Amino acid sequence: MQTTLETQKQRLSKLQPLIALFVLCLIIGLLSDKFFTVSNFWNVLRQISVNICLSVGMTLVVLMAGIDLSVGSVLALCGAITAGLFKMGIELPSQNLYIGFTLLGASLAGVLTGALLGFFNGFVITRFKVPSFVATLAMLTVARGLTMLWTKGFPISGLGEQFAYMGTGWFLGVPVPVWISAVVVALAVFLSDKTKLGRYIYAIGGNENASLLSGININKVKIIVYTIAGALAAVGGLMVTSRLDSAQPNAGTGYELDSIAAVVIGGTSLSGGKGSIWGTVLGAIIIGVLNNGLVLLNVSPFWQQVVKGFVILLAVIIDKANSKNG
């Protein structure tokens, strides 16, 4: 009898994000007649695409009991680098040389930059045993400063229709950003559920000492995961820059909080070792629906921050309660 009750509690715990999403949609739908419309549906999915990319990388990090506070700043820097290379290229007057970039080349440069910054995070954390909170907080400041230096504090705009397609275009009746985030999710699910690296990530988050004794190269896995998180932040940066047709120096501010919120609301434990990519996707949808609903209801942006903060706090409290019961 007790085993049956425990099983039911575990099932209910897994369904909590889905129940929360259903209740949230029902409440907003009753309060706003614009919520349950096709245009708003696509609008919500387009808006959450960036957060999904960030949150997928964040999930892999949190599964190892780590954290990455730098994703918002990395997003801004990579978006600015991509926009700058695509629009202006690189000039070397002393060599009488100009290097132009195609859209693909500039995009790859942006993603590579994100991967390198993520690699640096992982290297500092593993080589110097710096807590992930501190290391990525430092990178948050460094990347934001580099963004200001690269852009000189001014937006890089007028990128053209070709660049804008990534953020505003449609393919087979679905927004391009939704396709991009869907591919990211599919690859992340495969990595976490079907590969040796995925098993190592869960093992490290569950018990790092036991993982070390079992022969897992913990430092290598951590560096790979932070590199992936940085690359995915760069992908998010490409979508934001494309959607705005402008690389803003202050882009991505606060995005790390939304990604952490999506991870926690989706059921991934901050203690590591427990959670899933699908749960995070559901968490990102909840955050997106909440943001969209508050805008439709004309709630002040300041109150939106308050509401979002309490939602994150509630999710953490529920996570701790579930951990104790488990």
Rank of each mutant, 00 (worst) to 15 (best):
L75M: 14
L108E: 05
L92E: 14
G89E: 14
L92A: 15
I125G: 06
V74T: 12
I90H: 13
T102M: 08
N96M: 13
G66M: 06
G72T: 02
L108Y: 02
L103M: 13
A83G: 05
A109Q: 06
L75I: 12
I90T: 11
L77Q: 04
L63V: 11
G89H: 11
K87A: 14
G110Y: 09
C78M: 08
M88L: 08
G57P: 06
A83W: 04
F86R: 01
L54K: 10
G84L: 10
I99T: 05
S73F: 02
G105C: 03
N96D: 13
F86E: 03
A76H: 04
L97C: 00
A109F: 08
S73A: 13
L63C: 07
G118A: 07
I67A: 04
L104S: 07
Y98C: 00
L69W: 01
L85Q: 03
V56G: 06
G114Y: 01
A80K: 00
L85S: 00
V56W: 03
S73N: 09
K87M: 10
L112I: 14
A106L: 11
V71Y: 06
L116F: 12
T102K: 13
I99K: 13
V111T: 01
G100S: 15
Y98I: 06
T82L: 00
L77G: 00
L104T: 12
L112A: 15
F101W: 04
G110F: 01
S107D: 09
F123L: 15
S73G: 12
G89S: 14
F101I: 06
M64C: 15
T113L: 14
S73W: 02
S70L: 03
A65T: 13
L108N: 08
G84E: 07
G66F: 09
F120S: 14
M64G: 10
L60Y: 08
G110P: 05
S55T: 12
P93H: 10
L85T: 07
L103K: 09
S94L: 15
G100L: 12
G72S: 04
F123P: 08
F120W: 14
L92V: 15
F119V: 11
S107Q: 07
L108S: 07
C78K: 01
G72H: 03
I90C: 10
V71A: 11
G66L: 09
G72R: 02
V74K: 04
